[in-house]
Amino acid sequence: MRHVIEPTDLSINELDELIALAEDIRLNPVKYADCCKGKILAALFYEASTRTRLSFESAMLSLGGSVIGFASADASSAVKGESVADTVRTVSNYADICAIRHPKEGSALVASQYSGIPVINAGDGGHEHPTQTLTDLLTIHTIKRTLSGLTIGFCGDLKFGRTVHSLVKALSLYPNNRFLLVSPNELRAPDYIRATLANRGCEYQEGELLDTHIRHMDVLYMTRVQRERFFNEEDYLRLKDSYILNMAKLVNAKSDLSILHPLPRVNEISMEVDGDPRAQYFNQVRFGKLIRMALILKLLEIVEWRGGRC
């Protein structure tokens, strides 16, 4: 039995297999429509989510399976003080696979230690969000046809943005990728992320201004800069417009740049960008469902892993 708690739980071979399977599902959805008939996904969502929860549910339903679960901690026995360990032990008796989102970091790892069924981390606080990473990898791979030799820019809140942390770690496994980390100084990527890049010999550069770096990027991964993350209003006002992507900033960008965003967006990408062919963030949502379908099929061993682990 396998769990996916962080992106590095999957080898490069396995990531490639998932991406290939997701692409086959995209091209031949009917072939997979009944693959999970009789199987149940438990969606244990201790905090609000639009895309991730609905994406998991839609993925399972599109595979012919069923879904049970809760959409907030208030709707579970967590309000009575039940531990994650006890909840997941209980749910193991009702479902075949579970996806868990919980505000505490490391909660999915705890769930996996007590679960009798495969656990997928659907976001554990500010820590990891592997299925968003898989979504991002599938999006990049589908558009660029490669996950290597790319210059990937990350812009916005790189300190608290778990999607950034997970994606940086995953892309650092592929050769010759270069990372441009653009954020206000207060929201720089945490030391362990920079240490991971350094340990894996990846080239990376940090900066405060998107204008300076955008021309080099093959992929631009935008995230939200939130006012409450700043220590003072003055810094927020000074920096906030540096992190809003608009058509003026895209003037210097490559014509085949891919703009990604984990969503929800607030104002960090102007709506005028939505019509630009480089905007891929709504396609990304579709890829999110496809890769979750692929992951469910693999973890339920309905489609077997072909290659060995790295």
Binding site: S83, H102, K104, E105, G106, V110, Y192, A195
Partner: peptide, 28 residues
């Protein structure tokens, strides 16, 4: 923000990250 702050009777696990600097990181 770590799950160890609320989960009852959890085993606290740290992994060696950098032996030269003696840095350990929480496994969770």
């Amino acid at each position: 923000r770590c799950i160890t702050s609320i989960e009852r009777e959890i085993v606290h696990v740290f992994k060696l990250w950098d032996s030269r600097e003696k840095i350990y990181r929480c496994a969770y």
